[in-house]
Simulated assay, not measured.
Amino acid sequence: MITMKDIVREGHPALRAVAEPVALPASKEEQDLLRSMLEYLKMSQDPETAAKYGLRPGVGLAAPQINVLKRMIAVHAHDEKGTLYSYGLFNPKIISHSVQLCYLTSGEGCLSVDRNVPGYVPRYARITVTGTTLEGENITLRLKGYPAIVFQHEIDHLNGIMFYDHIDQENPFKAPENAIPIER
Rank of each mutant, 00 (worst) to 15 (best):
G109V: 02
S96T: 11
I2K: 04
L69C: 12
H166L: 10
E20Q: 14
L143H: 11
P118I: 07
G11A: 12
M37G: 02
L61I: 14
L61M: 12
S106C: 12
C102R: 08
R16G: 07
E80L: 13
V68D: 01
E20V: 02
K81Q: 14
I139S: 06
P47Y: 00
G131L: 03
R142D: 15
K174R: 10
V121D: 02
L33K: 06
I95Y: 01
L111K: 10
E29D: 06
A77S: 14
R16P: 13
I127W: 07
L143D: 03
E48L: 13
H12K: 02
G136V: 08
G82Q: 00
L61Y: 05
Y87D: 01
I94K: 09
I127G: 03
R115D: 12
I66S: 04
M4G: 11
I7H: 10
T133Q: 10
M1T: 11
G88N: 06
K174F: 08
E20L: 04
D165V: 04
P57S: 00
R71T: 05
S98K: 06
T133K: 06
E137Y: 10
Q45Y: 05
K70T: 05
P181M: 09
P57T: 05
P21E: 10
R9S: 15
D114T: 14
E183N: 13
K144L: 13
E154H: 09
I182W: 08
V113T: 10
G119Y: 01
D46R: 13
E177M: 12
T133E: 00
Q65C: 07
R126K: 15
P57D: 07
A26V: 07
G145C: 01
D32N: 11
L24E: 05
L134Q: 02
L104F: 05
Y120D: 10
A14N: 09
Y164A: 09
N116Q: 12
Q65E: 09
D79Q: 00
R115K: 15
L89Q: 00
A26S: 06
G131M: 09
L84Y: 05
G136E: 02
E10R: 07
S98A: 04
G145L: 08
P92E: 04
V8K: 02
G119T: 07
Q152T: 13
L41M: 11
F163S: 08
N91V: 02
S106H: 03
E39Q: 13
K93L: 13
A63N: 00
